[in-house]
Amino acid sequence: MDNFIFQALNGLSSAMFLWLVAAGLTVAFGVCGILNIAHGSLYMMGAYFAFTSFQILGLNFWLSIVFALIGVGIIGFLMERFFLRRIYAQPIEFQLILTFAFILVFDNLTKMIWGTMLIIPTMPSLFQGTIPIVGRPFPIYNLFIIGAGIGVAVGLWLIMERTWWGKKLRAAASEREMANAIGINIPALFTAAFVFAALLAAIGGALSTPIRVCDSGVGGAVIIPAFVVTVIGGLGSLKGAFVGALIIGVISSLCTLYIPFIELFILYLIMAVVLIIRPQGLFGGER
């Protein structure tokens, strides 16, 4: 039983990393209708900015996250304002081609700036060490990630459900023309929503740096499981993305312990089962 609890807890921290990436992907798709496959690149840029400010500029951990947020926020703004905005009316293939181009640009840009060396900063002293849970050492940082993931989920819920801006976002997501007709500035709202999605990616990237390597291909590595999570949860549904991340994170983790041979494809197996039973995803159609 102890092993089960411990492994489930680990699965929870994996799930929170997935959620942080999937949340931004969901906001970009749910509000702007953009299937941003370069979302992983924004995560990567967040990681590089956080690394640079923490390890090279010597800022503290929290300021390095702020630095990453500012940097990626600017990138997100430029992407939406000057590129994505031009293709909202185009078929989805255009989005895929354009955002794929961004992946190539960001991958090569990071190689030019940071080189090909693997980057992993030291763990901030605040998070070093473990605490015993069911008699085994559990990393403090992983507990922090669980807390951060839940915090982001609660924050998103409050923003979407309890603020005027969130209501406007939901209105624009469900009926764009009607929202425009009642005076909501849709282009500005979309820019803000895309930047918001980019900020979520930046948080994920920045929080990953002490335990995950920062490199020019990391964007591609994180985006696939994040897509699976959003598909399971239902494209555009934040609740779905959160539940999808929990399902994938915890079940994958438990499979590693109890049925290791299935762990490699459990992600896709769960997706296939969900799509057969409920093609729109667990919470598809809900916003």
Partner: peptide, 9 residues
């Protein structure tokens, strides 16, 4: 990217 489940196992 996340080896903690494997390591814990």
């Amino acid at each position: 990217m996340d080896f903690t489940p494997q390591l814990n196992a």
